[in-house]
């Protein structure tokens, strides 16, 4: 067994809420800006009549937008040299690099403009694996998104690969 890349104090955090729940009202302009930035100009994000005709209460939003809607505003003083923010939710690992490994999403209820969405993120999983290029850590952050009626609208599992 190679030496552990996961300090015991980090392993002990599995299951922990990584950041306090954030609640945000889904904003039409922000969602449309996101849709344009992706190049996904689906009419149900822009034309309320077409959204109604497709069975939505109001304009809906690109499926993955809710992650970005919930990003907390941060002061520029917290920017690190790599451009990312200093983040108290970072899980300490003995690695030099964290890469984006992918995501898994379940969509349970529609999300529409004006909804109040609350996101809560937990450290769902943390384990060390042996790959072709040596040991790496797989870190899973799970976010549960609920709406103003208390319904769970979506769940995301964001997978980070660190080595």
């Amino acid at each position: 067994m190679s030496s552990s890349l996961i300090p015991p104090e980090s392993l002990a955090r599995v299951g922990e809420v990584l950041s306090e729940p954030v609640t945000v009202r889904i904003d039409r302009r922000e969602a449309q800006r996101y849709a344009y930035a992706v190049g996904d100009v689906n009419p149900i994000y822009f034309d309320v009549d077409l959204a109604h005709a497709a069975g939505y209460r109001s304009l809906t939003v690109p499926p993955l937008f809710i992650t970005h809607a919930l990003v907390r505003p941060e002061p520029a003083q917290k920017l690190r040299p790599d451009g990312l923010y200093e983040d108290s939710t970072t899980v300490t690992l003995k690695v030099s690099r964290m890469m984006f490994g992918g995501e898994e999403w379940d969509f349970l209820e529609p999300v529409c403009v004006g909804d109040e969405i609350t996101g809560t993120t937990r450290l769902a999983d943390l384990d060390q694996k042996d790959g072709k290029k040596g040991p790496f850590v797989r870190l899973v952050r799970e976010t549960t998104f609920t709406n103003q009626d208390g319904q769970i609208v979506a769940r995301s599992r964001q997978i980070g690969i660190a080595r």
Binding site: N42, G55, L64, E104
Partner: peptide
């Protein structure tokens, strides 16, 4: 997000994306 667009452009506005990974 390109991936979800690829799916919803094919499936149309009345379809519902249930999961993606």
């Amino acid at each position: 997000s390109w991936l979800t667009q690829f799916i919803t452009d094919w499936a149309g506005p009345e379809a519902r994306l249930l999961s993606v990974e």
